[in-house]
Simulated scan of single mutants.
Amino acid sequence: MGKHHLYTMSIARVYPLYVAKVEKKGRTKIEVDEIICWLTGYSQKELKIQLEKQTDFETFFTEAPQLNPSRTLIKGVVCGVPVENIEEPIMREIRYLDKLIDELAKGKAMDKILRK
């Protein structure tokens, strides 16, 4: 069986959807960037480069400078599946990001989103 289509999808293709989702709920692109940088360890400049390069999700997470150790505290359901039960590592990272964006769109405080 081949790779899931999300692995080969460019993060730049999904990024505007994340931003649009949270902006509809009164949150900001800056907050989306903060979440992505917190999760992956990319700096703001490095994130911009990854978006410009159209990096696919698999490469984006595989080459992330420092995946945040607190990401394992992320719990909840994305696409009907509890994120903590996802065994495939890259898919789990993608779903962690989805869950954080969902929490932002639902109005959760940034300190709670970033597991502080």
Rank of each mutant, 00 (worst) to 15 (best):
residue 43 S to Y: 08
residue 58 E to Y: 13
residue 34 E to D: 06
residue 95 R to L: 12
residue 1 M to H: 13
residue 70 S to N: 13
residue 102 D to E: 14
residue 46 E to H: 09
residue 86 I to V: 15
residue 12 A to C: 05
residue 79 C to H: 02
residue 33 D to T: 04
residue 22 V to W: 02
residue 70 S to E: 11
residue 7 Y to W: 09
residue 92 R to L: 08
residue 109 A to L: 10
residue 80 G to W: 03
residue 85 N to T: 15
residue 31 E to M: 06
residue 57 F to V: 07
residue 61 F to C: 03
residue 98 D to A: 15
residue 113 I to R: 04
residue 8 T to I: 02
residue 70 S to L: 14
residue 22 V to R: 03
residue 12 A to R: 08
residue 97 L to R: 06
residue 59 T to R: 07
residue 49 I to M: 05
residue 85 N to D: 14
residue 66 Q to L: 03
residue 115 R to E: 03
residue 68 N to F: 05
residue 2 G to E: 13
residue 12 A to W: 02
residue 21 K to P: 01
residue 58 E to C: 08
residue 19 V to H: 00
residue 57 F to W: 10
residue 63 E to I: 00
residue 71 R to V: 02
residue 110 M to D: 03
residue 50 Q to A: 13
residue 5 H to G: 08
residue 116 K to C: 00
residue 114 L to S: 08
residue 9 M to Y: 07
residue 44 Q to P: 00
residue 79 C to L: 14
residue 90 I to R: 15
residue 79 C to T: 08
residue 99 K to E: 09
residue 11 I to G: 07
residue 86 I to D: 15
residue 85 N to C: 12
residue 4 H to W: 06
residue 86 I to T: 14
residue 76 G to A: 03
residue 39 L to V: 14
residue 65 P to G: 05
residue 77 V to W: 10
residue 18 Y to P: 01
residue 82 P to Q: 10
residue 68 N to W: 03
residue 6 L to T: 15
residue 71 R to K: 11
residue 30 I to P: 02
residue 105 A to I: 05
residue 104 L to N: 05
residue 16 P to N: 04
residue 102 D to S: 10
residue 101 I to K: 04
residue 30 I to E: 15
residue 39 L to S: 11
residue 96 Y to W: 13
residue 41 G to C: 08
residue 45 K to I: 07
residue 115 R to Y: 01
residue 111 D to M: 01
residue 75 K to D: 12
residue 106 K to R: 15
residue 58 E to P: 00
residue 76 G to V: 00
residue 113 I to S: 05
residue 15 Y to D: 01
residue 29 K to N: 10
residue 68 N to Y: 04
residue 44 Q to R: 12
residue 101 I to A: 06
residue 58 E to D: 10
residue 84 E to C: 05
residue 59 T to S: 12
residue 36 I to W: 04
residue 95 R to F: 15
residue 80 G to Y: 04
residue 96 Y to E: 13
residue 8 T to V: 02
residue 6 L to C: 13
residue 77 V to N: 15
residue 35 I to F: 05
residue 57 F to Y: 12
residue 32 V to K: 10
residue 67 L to K: 13
residue 42 Y to M: 12
residue 66 Q to I: 01
residue 72 T to V: 10
residue 10 S to T: 14
residue 110 M to V: 13
residue 65 P to E: 10
residue 100 L to T: 14
residue 55 T to Q: 04
residue 32 V to R: 12
residue 57 F to E: 05
residue 3 K to M: 07
residue 2 G to V: 01
residue 104 L to P: 04
residue 40 T to Y: 03
residue 16 P to I: 15
residue 13 R to A: 15
residue 72 T to D: 11
residue 23 E to P: 07
residue 74 I to M: 02
residue 34 E to I: 00
residue 114 L to P: 09
residue 115 R to C: 00
residue 97 L to I: 12
residue 27 R to M: 07
residue 60 F to E: 04
residue 41 G to Y: 10
residue 103 E to H: 10
residue 112 K to Y: 09
residue 36 I to R: 09
residue 28 T to C: 08
residue 8 T to L: 04
residue 40 T to G: 11
residue 55 T to Y: 02
